[in-house]
Design a protein around this nucleic acid. Sequence first.
DNA 1: TCATATACCTCGAAGTTCAAGGTATCTTGG
DNA 2: CCAAGATACCTTGAACTTCGAGGTATATGA
Lengths: 112, 112
Amino acid sequence: MAQTNPPFMSGVPELLLLRLLEQKEMYGYELVRSIRKVTGEAISLGEGVIYPALHGLERNGALKSRRKAVAGRTRVYYGLTAKGRKRLAKLADDWRRVQGGIESALGAPAHA
Amino acid sequence: MAQTNPPFMSGVPELLLLRLLEQKEMYGYELVRSIRKVTGEAISLGEGVIYPALHGLERNGALKSRRKAVAGRTRVYYGLTAKGRKRLAKLADDWRRVQGGIESALGAPAHA
DNA sequence: TCATATACCTCGAAGTTCAAGGTATCTTGG
DNA sequence: CCAAGATACCTTGAACTTCGAGGTATATGA
């Protein structure tokens, strides 16, 4: 759907990127495919989102990167910094709060 | 926190408004307080969000309104239309999809 | 009278996501 | 050799939503 500001997606790319990079270093193209995979095809992000997000996170100090030549191509691997870990923890907290609140609202009236 | 575009909040006001109004007619100020209550204080929305959202939903045909004088004040009660019910169902679906995907991503690496 | 509660309204700033467009190299099949 | 597709990175403008802050008005209580 051609919607520039879809509901429920704000903050999601950043959260997922940090989560994946918490596990291991990965490069952009790999992240695009992994996000689709770890979310069970529920969430799919285009490169137009991923790369600016990666750049922004690096600028903020949450990620560090290094270039690596593989089979004639250049890959930019990203890894989490200590600051990035803190940012991830914060985002996960925010997510839990919002998600919990919405579950209460969606579920509660059925119980009340 | 003074952030105009906080993570995970896009689409949330609309979803919560529709959900509450699915149960019964309510007026703006009442909705502001109810959202805080049904989300267990997890989510708090200001009037600057609620009123434009209500107006927008009415303009889209998802809500209908009527004015009612109560103790010298005017209250604007809103209620869901058939179109609004469809919109709610769609939003709930979208929420489930995104939420499920994120849970997979946040939880999966711990299991894998 | 003044402060607070109730009730509605408006607005500009800020930031994110999106699709689309682009660059470049490698691989494979015709 | 050439074209198509895959791999990998990059950029951009449009669209939209949430937010805080400001405003109006009336009623109530000290």
